[in-house]
Structures are given as C-alpha cells and as structure tokens.
Write a protein that binds this DNA or RNA. Structure first.
Lengths: 260, 260
DNA sequence: GCGGCAATTTAACATGGGTGAATGTCCGCG
DNA sequence: CGCGGACATTCACCCATGTTAAATTGCCGC
C-alpha cells in the first residue's frame, strides 16, 4: 500500500479527490496470464494495482523466461514505459488482476492538475529500481534456499511490514513454477527448497497463502535486510524527490514539447 | 555519451552553459576501489562520470559481493540517491576515476535554473533501470558463456554503438575477478569462458581493452538484443519524460517542501 | 461423484560451475 | 636488476542444481 501512504500524505484534498476519481473511472480487469504491456510494443499507459498481482518479465528467443519483479496491490506499475519508444519488457497478470489503467491523455491531465503527483510517482519508480537491484544480488549471489527465503520475506514485508515478533500470514499468488522463473531456478528445485523450508522453519506456501510462524528465523536463513524496501520513507522520499521539480517557471527557457 | 546527447539536444544554450560550468567547477578524482557512496549512509550527491568507470555494488554480511551495474564515461550515476534516507547500495571506482560531483545545494540550484535538466536526468535514470532489468535476466537465465558474451556486447555498444559490420575495440576496465562479481560467477570460471571466447570468436579481453573482430558472432552467442539500451532515443525519451513536469503552477495547490 | 486440468511431488541421473590451491605472467618500483 | 603485488591460468575434485519424466494431489465444473 505504498502509494496509498504517499497519496494521503502528499496530495492536497483536492488532488486526492481528482486522483481517486480518475482511478475509479479507469478500472480494468485482466484474466490470469494476460499481458498488460508487451516487450517491443509502444507503451500507452501505466497501472495502479487494485487487487491481484502483476509480473514484469522478459523472454529470450528460445523461450527462457525471467520474472523481473512483482507488483502488488497498491503499487505502481511501469510508469517508465511513458518515456521509451518501445517497452523493454512485458507485464502480465499473475492471476486474475484488477487495475486502474491510466493512459497518456489521462496521465497528462492528472500531472497538470496535481503538482504533487509527479514526485509521488517518481518515488514509487525509484523504489521499484531499488527492489530490482536487490533481486540482482539475490539471483547472483544467494543459493537456492536463501533465494526462496528472501523472496518469501520480501513478499510478506511488502504486504504486511516487518512483524514485531513471531510472524503471520499473507497472500502469495505464485505457483512454484512462477517462483522458479522469478529466482532463476527450476520448478523441481523450488519444490525441494519449499519442502526444506517447511521442515526448517515451518513455513507454509500453499493455496495462494504464505504462512510464516517465525519471521526472524526465515529472515536469518535469507540474510534478509529490509532496508532496500525503504519502509515508511514514502512520504519523506517523495518530498525529497520534489527537488527535481523545482524549476523556476519564467517560461523563457522552456523548450516546447515538440522541439526537434 | 548518452548524457552529452541529451544535454546538447534538450538544454537551451544558456542552460548548457550553466550545466557545463557546474560540472567543471565540481571535478573530483577517486583512486581505484574508493567508495563514492556507501550503503546505509545518507547520500549527498550524484555524479557524472568524466573518465574511468564506476561500479554500483552490494555486499552481504558474509562478504559475498555483487556488482549491480557499471557507469561509463558520459553517464549519470545515482540520481536516485537524492530521494532516499539511506543508500541501498554502494558505488565505487573500478579504477582511477574522474567525475563531476554534484551535491545537494548545487543540484537544487541547477534544477531551479535549468527547467530542461530534470527530464533529461530522469531519462538517464530510467535507462539505468532498463539496464538493471537486463542484468537480472542475464544472471537469472543465461549460462556462463552467454553471460560473459552479453556483458562484452553491452560494454562495447554503450561505448561505441552497434557496429555496422565487423567489429572494433574499446576500453574494458574490469579484471576477470570483477567480471565474475558482476555476472554471479567465479573468477576461475570467467577465465575458462574468456578462453573459450578467444577460441570461438577471436574475442580478446586484455590489458584493459576489449577487441571484438566479429560483433555479430559474439552477439549471436549471447542472444544479445540491444533494444534495452534504447539507443538514439535519448532526446525523444527525455522529451516524453516532460509529461511528468507539466504541472500547472498557480501555486495554490503546491505543498511546501517541509510539509510534515 | 466423475473427468480433467493445473499444480505439486518424487525419482534417477547428468552436468555446469564452484572450491581451493598451486603456478605462471606481467609490470612497476626501488 | 630483482622484488613484490596484481592478475591470469591450470588442475583435481565434487556438489548444487538442472533434466526428464512419471506419479500424485488438489480443484473446479458438470
């Protein structure tokens, strides 16, 4: 719910009303596996996830597939697609997905009317990049057990925060096959690991739910360190991002949008 | 030289003069291995690489280390550090490095005076994220030979563009050990692969230079596809990023920077 | 309650890449 | 000229993970 936090904290009431009305007007559903955006095509929108999970992925010519990241309810998806001519990755629904789909025209309108929106979305994009970096070290350096444990920790914390003591349960919409695609492992090997986790930490991943009785123990297995999620910093971070938007507007220096 | 392209294309002459004067006034050198920014610390600047290479990296408590990305001359490094309270990764000089170091105060001044600067730097940040994604699939899905081949292709293209025919040579400042840290492999195994590449494609990596006689052949080995580098899109991309900066400035709706 | 598909689990086997350690080569510096 | 450090190379061994394929479970619609 990172975006909720930012929106409530940073937008003025009038902006918030505009924003929420806009989301409500652009709700859309995607069935399991459907692509929201496809690599190589011209991107035309960004999305706010309402319910369900989205996955960003890339595929190689021979079919190998890597899930690059997950987008959970309340999170922003693919704002960067607005700046490129052709998408460098695809985005799809992990399972049945409900989103607000903000196209170019609507985005333009929103950014014009809500001066506090851009820094908020910028922050969300930066956060996405930070998570992406953690995935890189995860896949590059951790072994299979640590990798899977880390994924479970991350998903839990992104939904529920770090538990003060003990643990808890949360949604977990990936199949073992999808976990494998995300962590650069094989489906079979993920299965071996999940079973190990059941034995060693009593962690259960089943029926689209994740159950972590002892979070600290799982985190230790993964060397999980939540700082890359920048928890609780959303408002302050978006505020700091404002620096980018501080330009003086005397107009004389602004190039027109169509400048060749 | 991506930034050169953007700066020349997007900034007005007056802005360009300000920008270049600012860079010139903030030159700084780092010896091999020195940290520009350290994970966990409060970041106070971003950098433009003038000569030498920088590496972004992360380290685990037990010493395992992953290079997350490289920053080449003419590129922007760590703009996102301005938005977070503590850096989620470190940045260091690969070898002797010369940069322009833009601190907060100077950054503020520049952004105020140069309305076309923010979208340009935003584009550069988005590009960095795209490269990060490619590294994820590279490490997650490709085998060692493909991985190293891909790295060599990327480094070449980022410096020289895709060669029309044949190949060429360029700087290559990594040791085999650093290549290993970047690709999630062992130094020993990187050595095996480098030798294979010598035999199979006559590629030479030696003495801080990279020599690719037949780029197409190497690219085929790596399934290299340059679209993620968004070559030649810099100006158009920065232009599209302007959408984020389109807010109407009647003032009434803008929250002050210190808003709690 | 049955059929059928998706997801999980199990098993036997193959191998890419890691480990640790020794050796070789180059180059700058005193 | 010779020493020392950084980097590259080689070797023997073996384990974590991939591969293939079959069996099992669970779930949903009818």
């Amino acid at each position: 719910m990172e975006l909720g936090e930012i929106v409530n904290g940073l937008l003025t009431p009038r902006e918030r009303a505009l924003w929420e009305a806009s989301l409500a007007r652009h709700m859309r559903e995607y069935p399991k596996g459907a692509d929201l955006a496809r690599e190589g095509e011209k991107p035309g929108a960004f999305w706010i996830i309402i319910s369900g999970w989205a996955q960003k992925y890339k595929q190689m010519p021979d079919g190998r597939r890597q899930i690059l990241g997950l987008v959970l309810p309340g999170e922003l998806c693919d704002l960067d697609l607005f700046t490129v001519a052709r998408a460098d990755h695809s985005t799809a629904a992990v399972r049945r997905l409900s989103v607000a789909e903000i196209g170019r025209a609507e985005a333009q309108r929103l950014f014009e009317k809500c001066p506090n929106l851009s820094p908020a979305l910028c922050w969300a994009a930066m956060l996405g990049a930070s998570v992406q970096r953690e995935w890189t070290i995860n896949i590059g350096q951790r072994n299979a057990l640590e990798r899977v444990a880390q994924l479970l920790c991350e998903i839990y914390v992104r939904q529920c925060g770090v538990p003060v003591a003990g643990g808890g349960t949360c949604d977990f919409l990936l199949t073992q096959g999808q976990m494998a695609e995300a962590m650069g492992l094989t489906q079979v090997h993920v299965n071996r690991i999940v079973q190990q986790l059941r034995l060693r930490c009593a962690v259960e991943v089943r029926n689209m739910r994740l159950e972590i009785p002892d979070f600290a123990q799982l985190a230790a297995l993964a060397s999980f360190n939540a700082t890359y999620l920048h928890l609780g910093e959303a408002r302050a971070g978006a505020d700091r991002a404002r620096m980018l938007f501080a330009a003086e507007r005397d107009g004389s220096d602004r190039r027109s949008d169509g400048a060749a």
